[in-house]
Simulated assay, not measured.
Amino acid sequence: MSVATAKQIRDYTTLLDPSEQLRPEPIYAGKLQSEFRNFNEESDDPIKQRVRKTYELMHTNQTVEFVKSRMRDWLRFNKFKMTVKDALLKLNDLVDESDPDTSLPNIVHAFQTAESIREKHPDKGWFHLTGLIHDLGKVMAFYGEPQWAVVGDTFPVGCAWGDSIVYRATSFDNNPDGKDSRYNTKCGMYKPKCGISNLMMSWGHDEYLYRLLVHNKSKLPKEALAMIRYHSFYPWHAGGDYMHFCTSEDIEMLKWVMEFNKFDLYTKSDSVPDIEKLWPYYEKLIDEYIPGLIEW
C-alpha cells in the first residue's frame, strides 16, 4: 500500500482551496458558488428546518453498530430485482430531505448531472452514466430505510468526527460512539495511512450503490466506482478532513471525485432536461455497463 506523500497532500490542499481571492466568484446555474450547500439555520425556512432535522437524526444514530446492522441487511442483495432504468424511474418519487439546493425529484438531478458531464467530457460514456446513476442507492428509501440512513453527507464511523461535517458543533451530542474510547480518538479503530477504502462509512446510498455495482459485476472503471462511493463524503473531498488515512492511490482517486463533484453540486437548478428525448442514449450506456436485471 502506497502512503500519501507530504507533497501529494500539499498539492491536494492547493486544489481543495479554489478561493483564489482575487478572482470573481463563479456562477453556476444562475447562482453564486457560495449559495450552494447553504446550511445556515433560518427558523422560517421549512427546507432548512427539514435539512437540519435529517442531519441531527443521522448524526445521532449513525454508529459503528448501526452501520454493521445495515450492511448485514442490505449487502445480501436479496431485496428485489430491477433494471437500472426502472430504478431511475423510481427516483421520480423521491425528494432528498438533506439537500438545501433543490426540491425537485431526484431523477431530474440525475439527468442534470449526466448531461453536464457529457457536455464537458463528450468522449467518456462511462462518466456520463456515472452521473446518471450516482444516486441510485437512494431506492433504499422506498424499502424501509429512513432518509437519514440513505441521503446526506457521509463520514467514517469508528473514529473522531471531522471538524468540517455539517452541524458538527452540536449534532453528534447524543451519539454514543462519542463516549466510546474505541471510537472517539483521531484514528479510532483504524491505523494512520490505512486507506480511505478501509474506513467504515456512515450508511447511505453511496456505499450501498458501490457495493451493489461490484456485486453485480458492472463494467464501470475504478474511477467511476470511487466517484459513486465517495461523492457524498464532503468532509474529505471538500473539507480536507481525514487526510491522515490517505494513501497515494486515495489522492489520485480524490481528483476524480472532485471533478465529479462540480457536476453533481453545481448543476442543481429549476431547469429540467428533456428526459424522454435523452433516454435512448443512456439506455445504450446502461446496456453496455450494467445490463439486465440487477440484484438489489
Rank of each mutant, 00 (worst) to 15 (best):
A114N: 06
M58Y: 04
K85C: 03
E119K: 15
T83Q: 01
E97N: 06
I117S: 04
V108Y: 13
D93A: 10
T102W: 12
P122Q: 07
I117A: 10
H128T: 13
L57V: 09
D99M: 12
K124S: 03
T130R: 01
K79A: 04
Y55F: 13
N106W: 03
V84A: 14
A114V: 07
L88S: 04
R118A: 14
S103C: 10
N92C: 13
T60W: 00
Q112M: 09
W74H: 04
E97W: 00
D93K: 06
T130W: 08
L129K: 05
V95K: 00
E97V: 11
Q112W: 05
L75K: 00
D123P: 01
V67T: 05
M58A: 13
F127N: 09
S69W: 05
P46R: 02
T63Y: 08
E115W: 02
P105C: 03
D101N: 14
K85G: 00
K85L: 12
T63F: 10
T130F: 05
S116E: 00
R50S: 11
L91V: 02
E97A: 13
N106S: 13
D123K: 11
P105E: 05
K124A: 07
K124W: 03
E119P: 00
F127Y: 15
K124F: 07
E115F: 05
G125Y: 03
K53G: 04
L104T: 06
K81Q: 12
P105I: 05
R72Y: 08
R52N: 06
R118L: 11
I107N: 15
L75D: 06
L104Y: 09
T102A: 11
L129R: 03
H121N: 12
T130K: 00
S116C: 04
K68N: 07
L104S: 07
D73Y: 12
D93F: 04
L129H: 08
K79D: 02
K68P: 00
D86W: 01
V84Q: 03
V108P: 05
V64T: 12
K124L: 09
Y55S: 05
H121E: 15
W126H: 07
F77K: 02
H59V: 14
H59Y: 08
I47S: 04
E115T: 13
R70N: 07
